[in-house]
Amino acid sequence: MSRDSTLLLLNKGHVEVLLSPDEVVVAVRESFLLHYEQKGRLFPVVRERLGTGGIFGIKSGDVEAHGLLGFKAAGFWPGNRLVGSEPHQATIVLIDPHSGRPICVIDGNAITTIRTGAAGALGLAMLARPESTTMCVFGTGVQAQIQTRFALDVLPSLRHVQYMTSGGGRDPEFESLFASRCEVKPAGNANAAVAASDVVITATPGRSVLFDCSAVCGGTHISCIGADTRGKRELPAGLLERASVYVDDSVQSVEIGELQWAPTVSCSEFGEVLANGLRVPRTSQEITIFDLTGLALQDLVVARMLYMFAGEEGVGTTVEWPW
């Protein structure tokens, strides 16, 4: 049976076997460069609230030179928590650009988590002060965990991590993940924790502003993850105007990211930073912000990598998909 008459299915278990954090960082870096060099296209984002209480989105794009075409259907269903399941859900589909036939369907949850973590890691490596020792993380869920893990990898000087939960209490599970690598403890007050931190990571559902603008001191770097839909925000009014702002995509940031609240603020796309190949020069008092809304190219480049690995290692379930 020829491969073009079959469909490869990669479930959660397959993806977890194939994923390598280091290789994902390489793939995400490639996606930023493809975007900057205009070799990869991003199609208009779909992001809509549902009557069920969920949020449904589609991110899609292509890289013609690589024969890469596809989309990720994803969103946020808070009701899943009531049955002990993950509220973020994602499915990635790779499509043959010559025939329009689907070639691979992949569980996208782990891919979304780790590619966002990898993007955050690249941002910290290029934008944050390398001597940073203190960090504050808003959120303790899956995305906060992966962002913290990568932050400790790329900023080895980090020694102290404070975190904020939605209820303001402790999260023993989060602490246990990082206790061997740094001092980790709950923050008693959001503003005080931000003021004491060199790095701030916001990884919440983006329902409301998390801290006051006046709490952010010169020299701070902030990575923003939670604003990915119209109406969402994590940063206070006036902060973007004080900072050097970097985005994964300028259009998306204005449409669904933090720049929807300050669309006239100038920004730089992060792909240009990577293309220059040098850590961004910054003054000791400069505030930098990286607004990550997530690129379809990140999902597709990582998915293509897994598809290739799966073929080499015989991983996945192949089903007949005749013309």
Rank of each mutant, 00 (worst) to 15 (best):
V209P: 09
L210A: 10
L210Q: 08
L210W: 05
F211G: 02
D212C: 13
D212M: 04
D212H: 14
C213P: 02
C213F: 06
C213V: 12
S214M: 14
A215Q: 08
V216T: 12
V216A: 15
G218S: 08
T220F: 06
T220L: 12
T220A: 15
H221P: 06
H221K: 09
I222W: 03
I222R: 07
I222M: 10
G226S: 00
G226C: 03
G226H: 03
A227W: 05
A227E: 11
D228F: 08
D228I: 10
R230D: 02
R230G: 01
R230P: 00
G231K: 07
G231C: 07
K232F: 05
K232N: 13
R233D: 12
E234V: 05
L235A: 12
L235E: 02
G238E: 12
G238L: 13
L239A: 09
L240S: 02
L240H: 01
E241T: 05
E241K: 00
E241M: 03
R242S: 03
R242P: 01
R242Q: 13
R242V: 00
A243W: 12
S244T: 13
S244Q: 15
V247T: 04
D248H: 14
D249T: 07
V251A: 11
S253V: 04
V254K: 14
V254R: 11
I256H: 04
I256E: 08
G257D: 15
E258T: 09
L259W: 12
W261E: 06
P263Q: 09
V265E: 12
V265P: 05
S266Q: 14
S266N: 14
C267F: 09
C267T: 09
S268E: 15
S268K: 08
G271E: 08
G271T: 02
E272M: 14
N276M: 04
G277D: 06
V280S: 13
P281C: 09
R282F: 01
T283N: 07
S284F: 03
I289E: 00
D291T: 15
L292N: 08
T293W: 15
L297T: 05
Q298P: 07
D299S: 09
D299Y: 02
L300F: 01
V301L: 15
V301H: 13
V301R: 06
V302W: 05
A303T: 10
A303H: 12
R304E: 12
M305H: 11
M305G: 08
M308R: 14
F309Q: 04
A310R: 13
A310M: 04
G311V: 02
G311D: 11
